[in-house]
Write a protein that binds this DNA or RNA. Sequence first.
DNA 1: TATTGTTATACTCTATAACTATA
DNA 2: TATAGTTATAGAGTATAACAATA
Lengths: 164, 164
Amino acid sequence: MTRQSSHTKATPTTDPDDAPAKVDLGCLDGLLGYRLRRAQLAVFQDFITSMRDYDLRPAQFSVLAIIRANPGLKQSRVSEALGINRANFVALLDELETRDLARREPAPGDRRSNALFLTAKGEAFLDEAYRHLQAHHERRLDAALGAGDRQQFLTLLDRLAALD
Amino acid sequence: MTRQSSHTKATPTTDPDDAPAKVDLGCLDGLLGYRLRRAQLAVFQDFITSMRDYDLRPAQFSVLAIIRANPGLKQSRVSEALGINRANFVALLDELETRDLARREPAPGDRRSNALFLTAKGEAFLDEAYRHLQAHHERRLDAALGAGDRQQFLTLLDRLAALD
DNA sequence: TATTGTTATACTCTATAACTATA
DNA sequence: TATAGTTATAGAGTATAACAATA
């Protein structure tokens, strides 16, 4: 292999005319992780924009969703299920509790543990937020994916997530 | 809709026996962004592990790749192409220059700008790192994706990335 | 006036160590 | 001894404002 690898053009980029001239991604284009990262950033940005009026970030939404689907689950298991360090989970849950969306209760049978629940307000809030996401955010994502097979796409994402 | 949305089971999770009992993702399972994020984290983790001996993070690799494919490109355009804030790009490039992988040169015709190049060491380093990634990291990703259509997968990722 | 590179700053996210109370 | 929740802390990543040099 010479100085230029086969997938790069590397024209010395003089470009004296005012045309913007597209930047060549070079070997970056062959890295799945790069494409995945750009897609993930765009999707999260769209999520955050969609949830602006709810003031809810992706991590906060995920905590509420897990608690609702598993009421009474121990704090450590919720953080573990989401891959969130238990030390970092404390402040995250504190804020949800301050906003009266979730609550800690003493776990029956283990006085070290907290059992987590949504408040009535939290249940309603999550329902509304999720409906809004489906109607706007997910709807936009489906439009972007177009005719592509969404189910097959999700299957491949899950296979990658199972790497570790 | 009642207190429980249609896609959650929400059995009160008493679970007194010692079986670990899988955590229900609830409505999180219906969010594309969640699956995308988990996949991206797993892929980046695999990248970082693969590049341990090279001490090269994804962002550093991307900078080297863009510079190699577009030698002489202005600093602001490199950071812009990667979606990196120009203020944050300074320290990133400083480190690559300290390691003698890239260099700043005065841009011909504009004394405000820097034109970026790889050093000879940077060219060789990137070639070797990229070959190593292809042989190990990307190979593992392909194995994980299995029979799935990689090209279709990349197409859908790019459509999502084009959201904003 | 606008742009380029830079510094300073702040806020989020993430990771580790250590403490306490329980088990 | 080990585990659950917590605090403190440090490192990345990211965002904005402002400055000097130059366009």
